[in-house]
Each structure stands twice: as C-alpha cells, then as structure tokens.
Simulated scan of single mutants.
Amino acid sequence: MSDTSLTIDNILAPELSLCRVPASSKKRVLESIAERIHEHDGALSESQIFNNLIARERLGSTGIGQGIAIPHCRLEGLEHVVGVLMTLEESIEFDAIDNQPVDLVFALVVPKEATSEHLELLSQLAEKFNDRTFCDRLRQCDDANTLYQRMTAASE
C-alpha cells in the first residue's frame, strides 16, 4: 500500500472510533486519545503521544470552530498515520478559534517524516467537518460502530 493515497478510512480503525466519551477537560480528551492509541498499538508510548499532543496545543489550539477540534502531532518511530475519532458526552472548553466548546474530536498522529500526507489528511478532515449536516450525523451516533461507519462512508 502506498502512502500517497492516505484517506480517512485508511487511518481510522473501528476500535479508534469512540462515542460519547466522558471528558471534563481538554487535557482529559488528549489523555484519552493517547490511552486509546496505546491500547490499539502497545508499541506506541502513551506518555509520548500525550506530551506531543500537549506540545502541539501550546503552539495554538487545534479547535477549528463549530464545536470541532483536530488535535494532531508527529511521533518518532511511528510507521503509519493513526486517527482517533471521538464524540464527547458533553462539550468542553478547548480554546477554539471561535471560543465555542468542543464536542467532536478527530486526533491525528503521524510519523515524524510525513509532511505532505499529514497536510493532505488535515485538509480532508477540515473539508468533511466543514459540512454541518455531516457533523450533526456524527454527533447523533449512539455507538462506536455507527460513528465509524458514518465517518468512513465515501463522501461524494
């Protein structure tokens, strides 16, 4: 499989789609992301992922507005891009650009070297999340499987 055609369905696994996650803060959301990636792939360091996500947030919030955040970071020793999709039980403060609380999160952890793929994925995500109807359909999911299906359904 070549890395040039990275799409959301290549990087998101059903077990990395989490529905109605209870989270009280931005820090807790980032901890949950790191925990889940580590559970999914034990070779990846939970603390390293968490620290890299936090470091990225310090550069500027990844809250892109309309209740959506796309936290992302690079990770040394990672072979492939990993995505985590979460809807939150309750909206939380995320320092988003529009100051709105966040309840829809898509985290992206990419290999240290991946730059163009990384940007390509971010733009794919931003495009999908720009569609308010699509976001509402994600927010309405009651289980992880439906969430995964809706996120990865071919977008025409």
Results as ranks from 00 to 15, higher is better:
G83N: 07
K112S: 04
E31P: 08
R36E: 14
S91A: 09
G77I: 00
I92S: 05
D103W: 01
F50D: 06
D103P: 01
L125V: 07
C73F: 05
A126M: 07
V29E: 11
S32W: 13
T115W: 12
L30S: 10
A96N: 00
L104Y: 06
L53Q: 07
Q66M: 00
N99I: 00
E57N: 07
K26D: 11
E46W: 03
I64L: 04
A107M: 07
H38W: 04
K27M: 14
E127S: 06
G42E: 09
S24Q: 15
N52C: 05
E15N: 14
R20H: 13
A96R: 00
E89W: 04
R56P: 08
H72I: 09
D95T: 03
G65L: 00
R58P: 07
E46I: 08
I68K: 01
V29W: 14
P14D: 04
S25M: 12
V81F: 08
P22S: 14
I33R: 07
S123N: 14
S25Q: 12
L104D: 08
V105G: 06
F94E: 05
E31Y: 12
I92Q: 04
H80R: 12
E57S: 05
F50P: 04
L88G: 09
N52S: 09
S17H: 09
A107Y: 03
E113H: 10
E117G: 15
S17A: 15
P71G: 06
I64M: 02
L18R: 09
E120P: 10
E79K: 01
L75E: 02
V29N: 10
I49L: 04
D98E: 00
L122C: 11
I68Q: 02
D95F: 02
I54P: 09
V82K: 07
A114W: 12
L122P: 13
L30N: 09
A13N: 13
L121V: 15
P22Q: 11
G67T: 05
H72S: 09
E117H: 15
V109R: 02
Q48R: 00
A126Y: 03
G67S: 01
E15T: 15
L121T: 14
L122Y: 09
I33A: 07
L75G: 01
P22A: 13
E127I: 03
T62H: 09
R36H: 14
V84D: 08
G60Q: 13
H118R: 12
L53D: 05
E127A: 02
R20N: 14
L85Y: 04
E117Y: 12
V105D: 09
P111H: 03
Q100R: 01
D41Y: 01
L44I: 01
R36W: 09
N51E: 11
I92F: 06
V110A: 14
E120F: 14
G77V: 00
C19S: 08
K27Y: 15
I33Y: 10
H80F: 06
H72N: 10
V21A: 09
D103G: 01
I68Y: 02
L122S: 11
S116T: 15
S116F: 13
L122W: 10
C19N: 11
S25G: 12
T87R: 06
Q124S: 12
I33N: 08
N52T: 06
L16H: 07
E113K: 06
A114H: 14
P111K: 03
R74S: 11
E93Q: 05
